[in-house]
């Protein structure tokens, strides 16, 4: 015969900390609602795919908030019950009831909710996985730590800035020249990895003209933090103008001009080993194509604005702003530097 189960006597039977638990309940809603004001990210979608995911996200956040509230209330109830009822009957019946509660709360309800979420998620996934085709193809090659951007149908190569026509689907093909990177412009589309020896593709679309920031999302070494890109969605006309301009070779500077001096300095320096300027002998491919560098908004893979001062600092010693990047400090005198800057300025 078993002795009946005896509740123990624990010393110092105080029940501290309840007010604290209430306080916690107050802590979460404002934090949750802070999500609503997120701008520039996942919950501020500017393209169809990001829009679908945002809807899905809000649905799941809503379900999560309900479940969290239920569990927290139950937990609080344990404390309140302990306070009110000095003796709680321990009987097989109450055990049985509670066990049914466990099965309903722990198995049945989660199974139903999860099934619904799963169904919706697979539906979204099916839409996203529709055969990949677009009005335009852009090939993106990841490098440590910058983005090479090719428009194969137009013979255009640029870097760190992806121009697309707004409102039109663009087929993006991703691969990598070295390690694994990941393409993420949260307002437009979910992530996809750039993997050496493999091409991943997806359809990118921005609903409206605008500039959307993106960043490498897979750890890719020392300067993973500084591998930013911009997706520039232009109105169709602007896009066509831009594309036409990018197809041109670099303009030849006037004979005897300061710019031409700069071109000579450029072509006579180590720059040419890594950079290409179409129409000149510079045809290196280790670094970004500079044929139209002056038309870009940023330098250093999105980390600095494209302006004289920044560019000068970058050329002389990019290691101070982006330590570990592949571009060595340049040994140029002030005159040469100014000339090179003037020349680069012409590469619109």
């Amino acid at each position: 015969m078993k002795k009946a189960f005896q509740p123990c006597t624990v010393r110092k039977l105080t029940l501290p900390g309840h007010s604290g638990i209430y306080l916690l309940l107050l802590l979460f809603p404002p934090l949750l609602s802070a999500c609503a004001s997120v701008s520039g990210g996942v919950l501020d979608p500017q393209g169809p795919e990001a829009q679908r995911v945002a809807y899905l996200s809000w649905l799941m956040f809503g379900v999560a908030a309900v479940v969290f509230t239920v569990v927290t209330v139950l937990l609080l109830l344990t404390a309140v019950r302990t306070r009110r009822q000095r003796s709680v009957e321990y009987s097989p019946e109450s055990d049985h009831r509670a066990l049914n509660g466990v099965i309903v709360g722990g198995v049945v309800i989660p199974a139903v909710v999860l099934l619904i979420i799963m169904g919706l998620s697979i539906a979204v996934q099916q839409i996203s996985a529709a055969p990949a085709s677009g009005d335009l193809t852009v090939e993106i090659v990841g490098h440590q730590w910058w983005w090479e951007v090719n428009y194969p149908d137009y013979g255009v190569t640029t870097a760190n800035e992806i121009h697309i026509p707004a409102g039109r689907p663009v087929l993006i093909k991703l691969t990598s020249a070295d390690v694994i990177h990941s393409f993420w412009a949260p307002q437009l589309h979910s992530k996809l990895d750039l993997i050496p020896g493999q091409t991943n593709s997806f359809v990118l679309q921005a609903d409206n003209a605008g500039v959307y920031r993106g960043q490498c999302a897979e750890f890719c070494g020392l300067q993973h933090a500084h591998m930013v890109f911009l997706v520039v969605a232009d109105k169709t006309d602007d896009f066509n103008t831009w594309l036409e301009q990018q197809r041109q070779s670099a303009p030849e500077p006037d004979e005897g001009s300061f710019e031409q001096e700069g071109q000579q300095a450029f072509l006579g320096s180590a720059c040419v080993y890594c950079h290409t300027i179409k129409g000149t002998n510079a045809s290196g491919t280790l670094g970004p194509d500079l044929t139209h560098v002056a038309s870009r908004q940023t330098i250093g893979a999105g980390i600095l604005p494209n302006g004289h001062g920044y560019l000068a600092g970058w050329i002389m010693n990019s290691q101070t702003v982006k330590p570990g990047n592949e571009m060595p400090p340049m040994d140029l005198d002030a005159e040469q530097l100014q000339a090179i800057l003037a020349y680069l300025d012409t590469l619109k």
Binding site: P7, V10, L13, L15, P16, G17, H18, V71, L74, L75, L77, T78, A79, R81, T82, Q85, S87, V88, Y90, S94, D95, A98, L99, G101, V102, I103, G105, G106, V107, I109, P110, A111, L114, I117, M118
Partner: peptide, 25 residues
């Protein structure tokens, strides 16, 4: 998603134990 189910069981079993007992905080 299936792996969420065992966790649900666990959480509710603990809550049930606490609700059915006299928890000492």
């Amino acid at each position: 998603i299936v792996i969420g189910i065992p966790s649900g069981i666990q959480v509710f079993a603990w809550l049930g134990t606490m609700l059915n007992g006299r928890p000492v905080f």
